[in-house]
């Protein structure tokens, strides 16, 4: 066995291990676009419901709810499209064992987030909704990061920290923080992902 062969063997082992423990079909572009959608969602809410959204009575058809539900659905759709596209170029299937694990990791947090949102709307306490969203999403992303690259964990942690800052110190800026986190963080993370892994 010569030097080259040994080094090749080691690289091969490293690659196999990382591709069986890290999901790498995440798309930077999708993240950037989702971030932009979230920022637009923020401005749409400001435009449709005025600056003091949470001083109003909120029901299921309030612009705040409708706009952000659309942001959520649009962001998911964008991610699915881009992940599928990337999977084609990397040759790794989009819906693999790791993708299932990521889904399982993020799913409970999203469900609890949705139920807490319903509770907040029904009990006329909408001011907590942004904190619930940032906190729950952050927890979900943190769990998902166990099956992907390190950067995902930073994203999760940023959301959790922002939610807690918002809860204890910046409650009156909750709406703005929503735009900064779901918009800004995703754009920053997307740019980083794009620079590091491409696409």
């Amino acid at each position: 066995m010569n030097k080259n062969e040994i080094v090749q063997n080691i690289n091969y082992i490293k690659n196999v291990i990382s591709s069986s423990t890290e999901y790498t079909n995440l798309s930077g572009k999708a993240s950037i676009l989702s971030g932009m959608v979230a920022v637009s969602g923020y401005f749409a809410t400001q435009y449709l419901a005025g600056p003091n959204v949470f001083s109003q009575q909120i029901d299921y058809f309030h612009p705040f709810v409708v706009v952000w539900l659309m942001v959520f659905l649009l962001a998911i759709t964008l991610n699915i499209i881009f992940i599928k596209r990337k999977a084609k170029t990397t040759g790794q299937p989009a819906w693999s064992r790791l993708a299932r694990m990521i889904f399982d990791a993020i799913f409970p947090a999203i469900v609890v987030g949705a139920l807490l949102t319903l509770y907040c709307i029904n009990n006329n306490s909408p001011q907590w909704i942004p904190i619930v969203w940032m906190g729950m999403y952050g927890l979900g992303v943190w769990c998902a990061s166990l099956f992907s690259v390190k950067a995902v964990r930073f994203l999760g942690a940023s959301f959790i920290i922002t939610a807690m800052l918002c809860l204890f110190f910046l409650q009156q800026y909750a709406m703005l923080m929503l735009a900064i986190s779901f918009g800004g963080y995703h754009i920053v993370y997307g740019v980083w992902l794009y620079c590091k892994y491409g696409d």
Partner: peptide, 13 residues
């Protein structure tokens, strides 16, 4: 070698 590497990194595949 690939099989062994993959299996050593995950519990069950």
């Amino acid at each position: 070698l690939g099989i062994m590497s993959a299996l050593s990194a995950s519990k069950k595949l």
